[in-house]
């Protein structure tokens, strides 16, 4: 609507999830590119580490509280905090305010941050009004709805809408796309057999579509699914949706050997 020159570009703090930071930097660059293309100013605060979810989900509320404070301090100066993960962003959006139930000052700050925290793709479409991307990907993809993004952050149509504008890309929906893949954070190492069964159910549904690429919006799920695919020797590629949308899915997919130089 308004392209008045006085309107500043929204300042976005990019939440670099701990798993992404270590395992898949290209998702971070893809996120930054998509945000900048949408007209945002992107910063990556060096004072960030982890959102606190491991403690929160394992019963260690104190640890979650300490890390939540750190995230609030690192990000509250921005207009928005955006991350390429429904799971971490749901922690910030939904769990932070509850963590500080008995601390009025912190609760207020947590609520303020929660109100401006978004999962990447829903931010691009719902807040920035992005309707298409300029990218190419030659392949047939199937998209796995990661649970936190889907149920806590309302991410469902947005990635599909944007993927629909990628040249050369075909979407084939799998059955039970909204059913958990069996990652579940520490669940996947505490109950590996159940986790394996859930992964195999998910991958069977994905395989039934004939897609050559599996996409999703949470790296935890993707590492788990790619790890299972690699173990089974499957050629199906796994990327984060942002990598494809930003045209950065030209490198090796998750768990794939880099091409010889």
């Amino acid at each position: 609507m308004s392209d008045t020159p006085t309107k500043p570009r929204p300042r976005v703090g990019l939440f670099a999830t701990c798993v992404m930071n270590a395992f898949r930097p290209s998702i971070g660059f893809a996120s930054a590119k998509l945000l900048e293309d949408a007209g945002c100013h992107v910063s990556v605060p060096a004072a960030q580490t982890c959102c606190g979810q491991p403690g929160l989900n394992s019963g260690d509320e104190d640890s979650a509280l300490a890390l939540a404070k750190q995230v609030i301090e690192a990000f509250e100066e921005f207009d928005y905090v955006v991350g390429p993960s429904g799971s971490c962003m749901a922690t910030i959006r939904h769990d932070y305010p509850n963590l500080f139930a008995d601390m009025a000052d912190w609760r207020k700050r947590a609520e303020a941050l929660a109100a401006k925290s978004y999962e990447l793709l829903s931010f691009l479409t719902d807040v920035m009004g992005v309707t298409e991307v300029d990218a190419e990907y030659h392949g047939t993809i199937t998209y796995h709805d990661s649970c936190s993004g889907l149920r806590s952050m309302g991410v469902k149509g947005q990635p599909r809408q944007l993927l629909g504008t990628v040249k050369g890309l075909t979407i084939k929906e799998m059955e039970d796309t909204d059913v958990c893949c069996g990652f579940g954070g520490t669940f996947c190492v505490k109950y590996p057999e159940i986790s394996e069964k859930m992964a195999d159910d998910k991958l069977a549904n994905a395989a039934a579509t004939g897609a050559d690429t599996l996409l999703g919006g949470d790296l935890g799920c993707l590492l788990h699914l790619a790890g299972r695919l690699r173990r089974k020797g499957s050629p199906v590629k796994v990327y984060h949706t942002a990598e494809v949308l930003a045209g950065l899915a030209d490198g090796p997919s998750l768990g794939e050997a880099p091409k010889e130089a």
């Binding site: 670099a16 992404m20 930071n21 270590a22 395992f23 898949r24 930097p25 998702i27 971070g28 660059f29 930054a32 910063s43 990556v44 605060p45 060096a46 996947c188 190492v189 505490k190 590996p192 057999e193 986790s195 394996e196 992964a199 590492l223 788990h224 790619a226 790890g227 299972r228 690699r230 173990r231 796994v238 998750l254 768990g255 880099p258």
Partner: peptide, 28 residues
Amino acid sequence: PGWTGARDLPAPTGRTFLELWQAKRGDK
């Protein structure tokens, strides 16, 4: 801790996102 019983671990590329970003963009 229980990861590789049924799955491989996709390997990191060798640099973290933050160090690459800071090298490129010099962001704080």
